[in-house]
């Protein structure tokens, strides 16, 4: 499975939602793809930027009205 395979990206998102994985999620603006990068792995595109922290800060989880 390639590190840009959708399943690999989804698995990485799922894994890092519960624990530190040691991998990075990078965004390649040339292709619009998200790439999973292992430690010490070289990134193919010099324009790719680390986006892990944006996933790691989490997403707002709203409480439905009347559920409080």
């Amino acid at each position: 499975m390639s590190n840009r395979d959708p399943k690999a990206v989804q698995t990485e998102l799922s894994d890092r939602s519960t624990h530190e994985t040691g991998r990075q999620l990078m965004f390649n603006p040339e292709t619009g793809e998200i790439v999973v990068v292992r430690p010490n792995e070289r990134v193919a595109s010099p324009d790719a930027v680390v986006a892990s922290s944006i996933a790691d800060e989490g997403f707002f989880g709203p409480v439905p009205r009347g559920a409080r």
Binding site: P6, K7, Q10, L13, S14, F27, I34, F59, G61
Partner: peptide, 29 residues
């Protein structure tokens, strides 16, 4: 926009696995 991009990957993970989107995206604390 990057969060939207991640949400879309998680959404496709939802369609693929049947899990809810929060199985892929961490809740903000």
């Amino acid at each position: 926009v990057m969060k939207v991009r991640f949400w879309l990957e998680a959404y496709e993970g939802h369609l693929r696995t049947g899990q809810s989107i929060d199985a892929f995206l961490k809740h903000m604390r």
